[in-house]
Nucleic acid binder design. Structure first.
Lengths: 335, 335
DNA sequence: CTGTTAGCGCCTTCAT
DNA sequence: ATGAAGGCGCTAACAG
């Protein structure tokens, strides 16, 4: 069923059919009515592809992310999807799983499909997407990065102040009276590295020496956290607080500290980052950092929308995260 | 940059360019080479839209779900996306959030875009999508439902045996020696209702009377669980086990039971359903049901792929869930 | 107000 | 092995 069929049946021309389809003026009411009846009779449905052929857009955007199953990313994606859905766009989700090759493959397909825009979620993209070929392919596609940035005209960013936030939560522990603070890094993304820098800053500010010896490396996850706790205990040095770059790893460590006879937060305070749902499940509930995924999604969507509507957009937005005080840090440590 | 430009520059016709683009035979090697050079020189990229115009497909499928943020759904979506990505398809994700209107809106747009197939995730769709208009719109689109089913030729299903699983876990509690078992229902989806039926079956099988008085209603979530625990305690009757249709609600209740002085599983056993990540975080860890979301996703993808490739497919697959024994149920209750 | 015509970029016969 | 021409379904001038 095409507009040709409709036109023939309604005894008019395809232009007129097209006009009523697009609600344009200049169609005699009776003709319009006649066409609409035929439209309904055949349950006509315009071809978005044919329309895209002339309009150069299928009204769709793409979101690339490491993995939708990571709740933090899913929350960002959700907001973006809802926002664009309201504007008549569809969003296709791509899981690249840290693979530069996968990323390149997606970029190729997506640009061939002429998506109207792309949102990159996660700091990994700062590294992964910056190849000559990708950038060339993306030349005419607006790109918005959530927590990453690249110096191309068509790339915009919404950043989270990872460094500042980890510095703040470390300062916060010092304020509470903690002195022997450690940091656990469980990933090698730009974001993870910047977080560790925040920790370094805070320690230097407090005149702590041998900062590097206070940074423990492990794997991401419950098991990684368990290993980190074991490592810290095995070092045989004093410790009264451990800052983590990720909630889940923090929870794994907390469980292990408790299993090994330490009281949290009595003997050791633990802090996480992301404010994921698990932080309210564990015992004690985890003091963590809310880095506002919904806000990130909203800003990304707003920026991309503005670009698509030809508006001027401000780049370099920075989101301020917030400490969420719960139970894994004492109100005030007695010295 | 179109094939016309390429053809002109390479001194040949668009047909030849099209041939080398699609790797067809019958192109003199030297001509092929010349064309490929021009292709590379201009970084030519075919228009998927124009191709879709003739092939009638953009090689994309859609996944409709209540909410990507629900980890159980995200896990299914992830598998589907990866599977289809391997085959050169893109998947667009749609969050309908229980709204029939939203669902209809998406169906309209997606069919206009001529997606090659649609996957519906969640039992809600059995109700929500079954309108005359949706079914008409979807006439030529293969649809696969995860945990739902509808009697149309183009609709296929992958079911989870919710009734059987809840019956089994209830039986399992009886086997362990529990006698005063309650059930908490926190949603009104087809799946949730079927789960409650499984509970009823088990109780009847064990000659328990007044079954309905043992089914407590509450809201989904940590707070809903807390309320359910309070309700059960307030009833003033004996109870030694509570079966839940959802993990999170179960965890909320478990926390409340403990807060109110009950030992879990000493005084009361608690079981969940879904085996979500939180079940390994809470204390005690939750005994629950693994309903294999990855397998669901895989089966849905396989069925849809087979349909797209014109193969015959078997309908009515049923996935058997498994009890995951952890710490919220005693090994054997002493009578 | 309405119809005709020319693309949009590509694939596919059909001749040559 | 190659090129010309038609068509996919729709929109957008342009001419009435």
């Amino acid at each position: 069923m095409t507009i040709y069929d409709i036109a023939k049946e309604a005894g008019t021309s395809i232009s007129t059919v097209s006009r009523v389809l697009n609600n344009k003026a200049n169609v005699k009411p009776e003709v319009k009515k006649r066409v609409e009846e035929v439209l309904k009779k055949y349950n006509y449905k315009p071809s978005a592809i044919a329309r895209g052929m002339v309009s150069k857009t299928m009204k769709s955007i793409a979101v690339l992310t490491v993995d939708v199953r990571v709740s933090h990313y899913a929350r960002i994606i959700y907001v973006i999807e809802q926002e664009f859905s309201r504007k008549g766009y569809n969003v296709t989700v791509c899981n690249i799983g840290n693979s530069a090759r996968e990323c390149a493959r997606y970029i190729k397909i997506l640009t061939e499909k002429q998506v109207d825009g792309i949102v990159l979620i996660g700091s990994v993209f700062s590294k992964i997407i910056d190849t000559e070929e990708n950038i060339a392919l993306l030349k005419n596609t607006p790109v918005v990065m959530a927590n990453g940035s690249l110096p191309y005209d068509n790339f915009k960013s919404v950043m989270v102040d990872d460094r500042g936030t980890i510095r703040e939560i470390t300062d916060y522990l010092f304020d509470k009276g903690y002195r022997n603070i450690y940091y656990v890094q469980d990933m090698d993304t730009p974001s993870a590295n910047i977080k560790a820098d925040g920790f370094r800053e805070s320690l230097k500010l407090h005149n702590i020496e041998r900062v590097e010896s206070r940074i423990i490396e492990t794997e991401y996850g419950l098991e990684g956290g368990r290993d980190a706790a074991d490592k810290i205990i095995a070092m045989g040095r004093e410790f009264d607080a451990v800052v983590f770059g990720e909630d889940i790893t923090a929870i794994g460590a907390m469980k292990q500290f408790i299993r090994r006879g330490f009281k949290v937060p009595g003997d050791v305070a633990v802090t996480g980052c992301n404010n994921c749902s698990e932080t309210r499940i564990c015992e004690p509930e985890l003091t963590t950092i809310d880095n506002k995924p919904e806000l990130q999604g909203q800003m990304c969507a707003a920026i991309l929308s503005d670009i698509l509507e030809g508006k001027k957009v401000e780049n370099g937005l920075v989101i301020k995260a917030e400490i969420v005080e719960r139970e894994s840090v004492k109100k005030l440590k007695m010295l």
